[in-house]
Design a protein around this nucleic acid. Structure first.
Length: 684
DNA sequence: TCCCTGCCTG
DNA sequence: CAGGCAGGGA
């Protein structure tokens, strides 16, 4: 009866893909479900965690009694009957669900029989020995004791029934909410994929994450890891109970969440308060309420966003407002083939200005993220072997990144939320038997490898304290608004709840990409222009890939890319014009004077001032020596070409361009982040 | 054909 | 700085 896996033992045919979980009418016990929920440390407990001595409910079975119960439950031969009760292990899904009720009755019956037999045996033994008054008295006492225990047992059973009722009620609510999700999401989905796949395919898109490979038994159980995995784990423990009671597959660092003090659950209850008399009931009620409302909130937000997606594209302001509170995820391109492509194509047919509004919601170009935080993307331009030049490069450490003009919307909250979603979901999903390649191959899912496929990680690094594994979790909280911290705590401390929600929330995983795409803007701002100009100090001929790498907050499409390229083209134009102009001026002044000066580009020179004014107008970035060096090379090349009369050739500049394009140097890492980099030298 | 570049013009 | 255009390379 108390098999904790009964909720996860659904027959494949029974599993509705959009069910959060089932409400098996045969489910007879709330213990394994409720008790881990009620124990903040449940992650480290077995599912029968309520067996621990420190019971939440004062009238819960004592440890001793529960050991007895366990002995029966786990199929140990009962003391007297010797009737083995079959061991039902997690994963034994072939049993009909109705069998559980039968088993329950059998177990109860056996327990009663066992108790009666023990009593009879004791009495028999008494008759064999010498009868004494003392023995009679002890028999009376034991009879009283038995009566008390019987009453206690009945009380416990009554309470379990009540808890069961409450649980089923909650189940009903969850089911109802989940149906709502399906109604909206399903319809939305059918519309989008009409003409593509059949309705079945539409329905199964999310569900197949769970059901794909139905041949895997554990998969069809939906919410539980493969038996073999747990068996392996528990074999090493050697614990008898552990062979039957499997630990929840969720790896949560709960002690991290519990600071020893009170844990605020957002329901006006503090850990410790519910340990008082009657507090357990209070806590259970409050917790259930909190869980229900948490589910409702999550679903509401999903619905809200999906509704928005189906209507008009929101403005940036709307998005900026929406995002911090809506942890929802958009179906990405993989999940909705054709959608992004079509929209892009449509957008391409529009004028640039109109496109920008149209493209508000375009999913991110897949290739864009690949190059994020890559070492150096413009390696296609071979560097001349000039070690002295590289030595002139400013040390990267001095490049601090300050969002002097943050792009809109502000990038900070989103990455945090992005990470929150990733972390939250992958923590629970990573231990689930999902073999959906499309999911696991998603770079954003691979948070464990510190995959830098999304920009937030460096931003997380800006948080205080710096985020390690633990710190990142703290960062998660930072990213969640205050009202949602309760939700976060509920999620993080009750793995079973995560598992239950996952079925619904799996729909939302793809929304992570959407959040990521919301984090970038498709238009270029003056801030981007400023950044591009500063980048020109390092690279005069950036490839489009380089641009994508160093403008992570820009949603790239053909127009944006060509606009950025055009900017650099204009920068080069201005640069070469100035070089030619000053080279001609030097040539006019006479070759001797030019040689005397060595055609050096002093930082006090007029040329330097002009260049600095053009590319670094606010003068808040120190012009790198490398750029001065490259400028000198260009100046010299122009000078010699003019001196030698090569400028008569209409293509005389091309050779100079070739030289200059080889002098591109790596752009500092600080440029990889959104916003404008600022030089610390100017800060001091 | 697409992408990049440079030149010219406004 | 942007638009248009032409040329060249892959």
């Amino acid at each position: 009866m108390d098999c904790p896996s009964d909720l996860f033992q659904q027959q494949p045919s029974q599993v509705c893909h959009f069910d959060l979980y089932h409400s098996p009418s045969e489910s007879t016990s709330t213990g394994p479900i409720i008790s881990p929920l009620l124990h903040p440390n449940s992650a480290s407990q077995r599912w029968g965690g309520y067996r621990q001595g420190q019971c939440l409910f004062s009238d819960m079975p004592t440890q001793e009694e529960e050991q007895e119960v366990d002995a029966d439950r786990f199929g140990r031969k009962s003391a007297t009957g010797g009737t083995p009760i079959p061991q039902y292990r997690i994963g034994d899904r072939r049993r009909g669900s109705g069998d559980w009720s039968q088993d329950l009755l059998r177990v109860k019956q056996l327990r009663v029989d066992s108790s009666v037999k023990r009593e009879a045996e004791a009495e028999r033994d008494g008759h064999r020995g010498r009868r004494s008054v003392a023995q009679l008295e002890s028999a009376e006492k034991s009879a009283e004791e038995r009566g008390r225990r019987k009453k206690s047992r009945e009380g416990r059973q009554r309470q379990r029934r009540e808890l069961k009722l409450q649980l089923e009620e909650t189940r009903g609510k969850l089911l109802e909410l989940q149906r709502k999700v399906w109604q909206v999401y399903g319809e939305h989905h059918v519309e989008e994929e009409k003409g593509g796949e059949g309705d079945d395919g539409v329905m199964d898109e999310t569900a197949e994450m769970f059901s794909e490979g139905e041949t895997d038994d554990h998969l069809s159980s939906g919410l539980y890891p493969p038996l073999g995995v747990n068996e392996k784990n528990h074999e090493s423990t050697g614990s008898q109970n552990s062979e039957v009671f499997h630990e929840p597959p969720v790896d949560l660092d709960l002690d991290m969440e519990l600071d020893g003090g009170g844990v605020w659950l957002g329901c006006s209850l503090v850990h410790g308060e519910w340990e008082n008399v009657g507090g357990s009931e209070k806590f259970a009620q409050a917790l259930k309420q909190e869980l229900s409302s948490a589910v409702a909130r999550v679903i509401d937000r999903v619905l809200h966003l999906y509704a928005e997606t189906n209507q008009t594209p929101p403005s940036s302001a709307m998005l900026a407002q929406e995002i911090p509170t809506s942890r929802t995820i958009d179906p990405d391109k993989k999940h909705r083939p054709g959608m992004a492509v079509n929209m892009t194509d449509q957008a391409e047919a529009l004028p640039l200005v109109a496109k920008r509004a149209q493209e508000k919601r375009h999913p991110l170009i897949q290739g864009r993220q690949k190059n994020l935080l890559m070492p150096q993307a413009n390696s296609s331009l071979p560097l001349l072997p000039q070690p002295h030049l590289s030595a002139l490069l400013p040390p990267r450490s001095k490049d601090s990144f300050l969002q002097s003009c943050p792009p809109n919307p502000p990038p900070l909250p989103l990455p945090l939320l992005h990470y929150t979603m990733q972390h939250l979901f992958t923590r629970s999903l990573s231990s689930m038997p999902l073999h959906k390649d499309g999911l696991h191959n998603e770079p954003f899912m691979d948070f464990r490898s510190h995959n830098p496929s999304f920009p937030p990680l460096p931003l997380l690094g800006q948080l205080n304290p710096p985020l390690g594994d633990r710190g990142r979790d703290e960062g998660m909280r930072v990213g969640i608004d205050g009202g949602d911290s309760a939700l976060y705590l509920v999620f993080s401390q009750y793995p079973i709840f995560i598992l239950i929600l996952c079925h619904c929330v799996i729909d939302c995983v793809c929304v992570t990409h959407f959040l990521n795409s919301l984090n970038s803007q498709e238009g270029l701002s003056p801030c981007h222009l400023k950044k591009a100009k500063l980048m020109f100090f390092y690279t005069r001929y950036p490839s489009s890939n380089t641009l994508k790498t160093y403008f992570p907050d820009v949603k790239f499409n053909r127009c944006v890319t060509s606009q950025l390229i055009k900017w650099f083209s204009n920068f080069r134009e201005f640069f070469y014009i100035q070089m030619e102009r000053f080279a001609r001026q030097a040539a006019r002044e006479g070759p001797v004077t030019a040689r005397e000066r060595g055609l050096r580009l002093s930082r006090n020179s007029e040329l330097f001032r002009i260049l600095n004014m053009h590319y670094n107008k606010s003068n808040d970035y120190q012009v790198p020596d490398r750029f001065v060096e490259v400028s000198e090379v260009a100046l010299r090349e122009f000078f010699t070409a003019i001196q030698s009369g090569r400028d008569a050739d209409p293509c005389w500049k091309k050779s100079i361009y070739k030289i200059i394009c080889k002098l591109d140097s790596p752009v500092p890492d600080s440029f990889r982040l959104p916003g404008c980099p600022m030089d610390t030298h100017r800060m001091v």
